[in-house]
Design a protein around this nucleic acid. Structure first.
Lengths: 229, 229
DNA sequence: ACGTTCGTTATTGGATCCAATAATCCAGTT
DNA sequence: AACTGGATTATTGGATCCAATAACGAACGT
């Protein structure tokens, strides 16, 4: 991860981080030349990065005057979380509306077992948070994949560029590990409830539960529980 | 529209059309150099176009071997329409869940009046289809804007690059103008029903109706009724 | 005859250069 | 003094050039 990154990726990641962190304030113009000099690269990586960021909605094109940063407000993060909720809700609705493949049921239970194991004991260390993160990712990925609707994944990939999955968000809870455990445990139980509704074919309930599960991340200072990349 | 286009836009549009139309078959590799020569431009516009198309999911990166076209199957179009339905459903849900601004009610009624005017008489010409297209766009745009959730628009912008709004789709119906009128009239009445549910604050109903409205486009050979850009 | 390794080649990513274009600034005029 | 016009300049988009890299093929050794 700390390996030397190609210039294009490096500039893209750096700019994205600077915008979402507010280091580049909202509305500030981002010129190609000055940015290129700032990073010590040519204008080319900056250009491609700005194109990508435009697609992500993090910068806006100003006609001929280049691009301007679009600051990410907490309200926008809430917006993105809400969108993620309905998209993942659609995914589970689709799964629950169709016959359940035996292989899926098995894989789903295997993933959920990871979560069960995490909260089997009363102890909870920061390492557990990492493991929960992996488990959570696997859970959401499995559902997304099983839905068979690739358009959901395409739409989701936008939201996940927002700082919902950043380590900074997680750090807030690391101070109080007991609270973190309770919160993550609640999330896991929501997973279980969603899974049960899916396997029982209760599509409406599965969708509703998934939406609420996403919205749980709206609580400030709590783990975002973001899905895939 | 038929004005001379900049090379970048031209290549992007052309490639997009060629992929969704199947002129470039699924899995076929798209090399920068040969494509650039084919269009008579340098590699640069092709590069940016491929980057954009990758974001849209229409091409896949093949590590070092460049990109490959990802053919758009009818199933994928259905997927995208379903996603659009839930996203626009979320938009109207949000609007209906909040107090209605007087200005919004007025603007909404003004837009719907355009639709009323279209179907006031029994005659229907191809020109009316164009007008319906504008009206339809205005309706969906207004809802998207009023929702206040920009993440919805960002997510939607992906889906609308699929050939749902292409003139080719519209052409199918131009052969039988009477059928087109009936279909578009039904869509307009769905708009009215959605609007009524919104203004009455019936959020669930508004969302459900909007979803079904989107799915109406699933009927083959019928106008997609696509939303914004 | 088959596998391995080295060299060639095709192809993308980055850098630099050039052209077009719109915004800004200054001067001239009313 | 204010407004209008043109000229300059800053900035993006496109073209060409260079470097890095991985795939492909051939030759050699076992």
């Amino acid at each position: 991860m700390t390996a030397p990154m190609k210039p294009g990726q490096r500039v893209l990641f750096a700019l994205r981080k600077m915008i979402v962190s507010g280091e580049i304030p909202d509305g500030e113009r981002i010129a190609e030349i000055s940015t290129a000099e700032r990073f010590g690269v040519s204008r080319m990586p900056v250009r491609t990065a700005l194109r990508t960021l435009e697609q992500e909605g993090l910068v806006a094109k100003l006609g001929r005057r280049g691009y301007a940063a679009r600051g990410v407000t907490p309200a926008q993060i809430d917006d993105a979380i809400e969108v993620r909720g309905v998209l993942e809700g659609l995914a589970v609705r689709l799964i629950a509306s169709r016959p359940i493949a035996p292989g899926f049921a098995r894989r789903l239970k295997a993933v959920l077992a990871e979560g069960d194991a995490l909260f089997a004991g009363a102890d909870f260390a920061p390492e557990h948070v990492d493991r929960f993160y992996s488990y959570n990712l696997a859970f959401h990925d499995l559902l997304l994949e099983t839905s068979g609707n690739r358009a959901i994944g395409v739409a989701l990939s936008r939201n996940n560029h927002l700082p919902l999955a950043s380590a900074a968000s997680l750090a807030l809870d690391w101070d109080d590990i007991a609270t973190a455990r309770e919160y993550l445990k609640a999330a896991h139980e929501e997973h279980l409830a969603v899974a049960e509704a899916i396997l029982a074919g209760r599509a409406d309930e599965a969708e509703q539960r998934m939406r609420r599960h996403a919205k749980a991340a709206l609580n400030p200072g709590l783990m975002p529980l973001v899905g895939a990349v």
